[in-house]
Nucleic acid binder design. Structure first.
Lengths: 189, 189
DNA sequence: GAGTGACCAGAAATGATTTTTAGTCATACG
DNA sequence: CGTATGACTAAAAATCATTTCTGGTCACTC
C-alpha cells in the first residue's frame, strides 16, 4: 500500500464528505492511517492536497463527457450530450456537489478558486472539441474560445439557473430546440 | 413639500449611499426631517420603503433602455443597444451599483431578492420587445420567454462575467459579431 | 387626527477567553 | 541513515457574556 495513495484516498473521502473547510489534516491522517507529518512529505500544504484531489475529479469529468460521445452523431448532438454530462456532474459527483454547497454557504476562498478552475476547464474542453470540429470541416471557422464560453454559460443558465427562479426545471427538449435554433444555427456546416 | 415625497427622496439618497443594511430608519427620518413614526404612516416597514425605491429605479432602467431605441434601426441593433444600456446601469446607477456590492459582500437577503426582481424585470422587458417584434413581423415566431432569458444571460456572461475571469474586457464589436452570428441568426426574418 | 420621539425587545456588534488546527521538527524506529 | 511520527506552537476560529444598535410601536402633543 502506497502511502501517497492512501493519503489521496483518505483526503478524497473526507473532502467529499465534509467539504474543504471542515476537513482537518488530523482527520485525513487518521483515515489514511499515517502520522500527520507524513502528509507533508507528499503535499506542501492542505491546499495542494486539495488541488490534487480536484485535478483527479476534473479528469473524471472529462472522461464522463467523453463517454457521452456517440460515433456518427452530429457535432451538435455530441456537444449537447457532453455539456449535459458535465452539468449533471455537479449533482452526481459527491465532491463537486459538496463544493458547490460550501461555496454558497461558507464562501471559502480556496473553494471559490477551485470552482472557477473547474469551469475554466469545462470551457477549455468545449473549445478543444470545437477546434477539432473546425479542423475536420464539421463546423464553420469561428472564434472557438468565445463560442465555447457562450455555449457553456448558456447551458448553465438554462439547465441550472432557470430552475432556481422559475421553480420548475426546463425540459431537455426545449433546451435542445432553443440552442439548435439559435447558437448552433450559424456554426453547423 | 409632500412628506411622503421627502421620505422617498431621503431613503433613495441613503440607500444609494450606504446600501440597504447600513441605512437606518432613524437616519432616513433625520434626512427627511420627519419623526421616525411618520415613515411608518406611509410604509409598513423598512423593506416596503426599499421596494418603493427600487420600483422607481426599475422605471428609470426601462426609460434608459427605451431611450436607446433608434427609429429605423434593425431589431437586432436596437435589442443590442437596449441590453447594453441595461447592463451599463449596473455601474452607472448609484443604487444599483451599491446593491451589487452589498450582495457580494454582505449577502443581505432583502438585497438578493431585490436584485433577482430587477433581473426578472429586465428579462420581461426584453420578452415584451421580442413579442412586439414578432407581432410586427420583424422576427420569426419563437419562444419569447426563453429567448429573452437566453439573450439576457448571454449578454450578462459576455459583458459582465467575462472580464472577471479573463482580466480584460471583451470589446463590443466582438460581442455584436458573436451574438448576431449565433443567437440572432435564426430569429431575424 | 396627524406627527412625533422616548421606549422596548430582539438582533447584531464587541471583545475577552477558550478551543481548534495547519504546519513544524526533535525524536523514535526500521 | 532516512523515513515516519505525533507532541508542540502560533495563529485562526469558535464561544460566550456583555454592550450597543435598530426596527417598530404607541402614549402623548400640538
Amino acid at each position: 500500500m502506497d502511502r501517497r495513495q492512501e493519503i489521496l484516498e483518505a483526503a478524497a473521502k473526507s473532502f467529499s464528505l465534509f467539504g474543504y473547510k471542515a476537513t482537518t489534516m488530523d482527520q485525513v491522517a487518521k483515515i489514511a492511517n499515517v502520522g500527520k507529518g507524513t502528509i507533508y512529505t507528499f503535499f506542501a500544504n492542505k491546499e495542494e492536497l486539495f488541488h490534487a484531489i480536484v485535478l483527479k475529479m476534473i479528469e473524471e469529468m472529462r472522461a464522463a463527457a467523453d463517454a457521452a460521445f456517440v460515433e456518427g452523431a452530429s457535432f451538435q448532438q455530441n456537444a449537447h450530450a457532453r455539456l449535459m454530462q458535465m452539468l449533471k456532474f455537479r449533482e452526481t459527483h459527491q465532491l463537486y456537489a459538496k463544493l458547490i454547497d460550501e461555496e454558497k454557504a461558507l464562501r471559502t476562498p480556496a473553494v471559490s478558486e477551485v470552482l472557477q478552475t473547474i469551469e475554466k476547464e469545462a470551457v477549455s474542453y468545449i473549445q478543444e472539441k470545437i477546434e477539432k470540429a473546425i479542423a475536420k470541416g464539421e463546423l464553420k471557422p469561428c472564434d472557438a474560445e468565445l463560442v465555447a464560453y457562450l455555449l457553456f454559460k448558456s447551458y448553465l443558465a438554462l439547465v441550472v439557473d432557470w430552475g432556481k427562479n422559475h421553480g420548475t426545471e426546463l425540459d431537455e427538449e426545449r433546451i435542445v430546440a432553443l440552442i439548435s435554433d439559435t447558437i448552433f444555427k450559424s456554426l453547423v456546416i
